[in-house]
Design a protein around this nucleic acid. Structure first.
Length: 202
DNA sequence: TTAGAGATGATC
DNA sequence: ATCATCTCTAAG
């Protein structure tokens, strides 16, 4: 078990803006079949918080729908959605059930299973550097093999997809405006490790 | 190195 | 029509 222990559900049972910075340095792990050969993991270096109450950019802003129902479920679960018709994005659901809070995972430092990650991201003819494997919310889901079927899965179980704590702390936590949204741009709810070369922008 | 456009489909 | 994106191509 190279990844440490999964974070407990109580970790997620807080507002997304509190959970988000604490997720920096943790490991996002996908162990699809319990074998070391297919396990891949990356250290979280960039996240964004989305809140159900008064956040115009959140998918949960207008209440539960078929797509966002995981956001309103119990904390410590995964919310996965399709964006622009072709990319999957992964969130950690936060706050008590009934509150539509989540943290979008935007970038990882690849840690384990890097050859498999490169194979899963082999669509491009261009040479994929290690920095290009997980430096974006849709890149990292492709590298880890996270898709719509994983929406709602439990992150606190060591099986399948989990977020684990191995004791490492982020070096340089920085707060800024969120990326790629047209509303709520004034809210400084993006958190990243400025010392990492693996964040989604340079 | 940077800017722009195309891909591609669910959502509300 | 919008969208919590990525990639390639072309221009400078």
């Amino acid at each position: 078990m190279p990844a440490g222990n999964p974070l407990p559900r109580t970790f997620y049972e807080r507002p997304a803006t509190d959970v988000a910075p604490d997720l920096l340095g943790k490991l996002l792990v996908h162990d699809p079949d319990g074998t070391a050969e297919t396990l891949r993991a990356g250290r979280i270096v960039e996240v964004e918080a989305y809140r159900g109450d008064s956040d115009p950019a959140a998918h949960s802003r207008s209440g539960p729908t078929a797509r966002n129902s995981s956001m309103f479920g119990p904390p410590g679960h995964l919310y996965v959605y399709l964006i622009y018709g072709m990319h999957w994005c992964a969130n950690a659901v936060c706050a008590p059930a009934g509150v539509g809070d989540a943290v979008l995972v935007r970038a990882l430092e690849p840690i384990h299973g890097i050859p498999l990650m490169a194979a899963l991201r082999n669509r491009s003819r261009r040479q994929t550097s290690c920095r290009d494997l997980c430096s974006g919310p849709a890149k990292l889901t492709q590298a880890l093999g996270i898709e719509g079927v994983h929406d709602g899965c439990d992150l606190t179980s060591a099986e399948g997809i989990s977020i684990c704590d191995d004791g490492r702390m982020p070096a340089d936590v920085t707060q800024a405006a969120r990326i790629g949204i047209s509303r709520g741009t004034e809210l400084p709810w993006r958190f990243y490790d400025a010392s990492s070369p693996h964040v989604s922008t340079r």
